[in-house]
Amino acid sequence: MASRPEIQAPPEIFYNDVEARKYTSSSRIIEIQAKLSERAMELLALPDDGVPRLLLDIGCGSGLSGETLSENGHNWIGLDISPSMLDIALEREAEGDLLLGDMGQGLGLRPGVIDGAISISAVQWLCNADKSSHEPRLRLKAFFGSLYRCLARGARAVFQVYPESIAQRELILSSAMRAGFAGGVVVDYPHSSKSRKEYLVLSCGPPSVSSAVPSGKGEDGESASDDSSGDEDNRTVSISDRHRPKKKQKLNKRGKGREWVLRKKDQMRRKGNAVPPDSKYTARKRKSRF
């Protein structure tokens, strides 16, 4: 599995011209991004009155997620730190306005003017310190604080995130709560490793019915491929839970057997790992007296 882009380089360097082009010419990525942003729009739960709103797309990149916003008839302002990605957005004739900016420096927007914010796969970048002056905690604080100020009362913000670990998710969530947001994490397909998606759903203003966290998709073993059918009944609340028991390894009494060990060793060799040579002792059980 390819390693996470967050640990390879800072966003403005990782998304260079080549990477930005690659990102936007892959139909698979475009499809995923469209799906994610559609789901984010759904979670944003804007009133269904046909009035276009002013939305914010944080980490808009090449404007893939903004396209979904435009399709829904909304006006949007996009913010991204990678000039190459924004160039592609211009090429794709993104309908929203684009800003080159760093969300970790805070959003320079007037208070109370934005009707909603979405962000697709971007906020986890804030957890990295890419420069000596970066302090993730402070950057998250600046980001959520300024976002809270610029959102209108009762507005929502939906962030699709890929946290690296539980600690990272806690860090992001606690920074949001400290800034005054209410809300939580919605997990779609929590049992699938591939299509599992986490959304941070935040609302600002006093707690109300609208600030209840919506439910995630596919909790009851509904397979991810079924999601186009959009079966409402199968959705249940699934707030991520660190106390959930980890998957237990299947072990039978006789162990995994020589064949299994040889296959695994071969797999590791193909990956280029240092693996001891096979011999007659391979996968042999130790004597009990040992």
Partner: peptide, 9 residues
């Protein structure tokens, strides 16, 4: 529209 929302940070 965007100019009207932006302020110096």
């Amino acid at each position: 529209l965007t100019h009207n929302m932006l302020s110096s940070n």
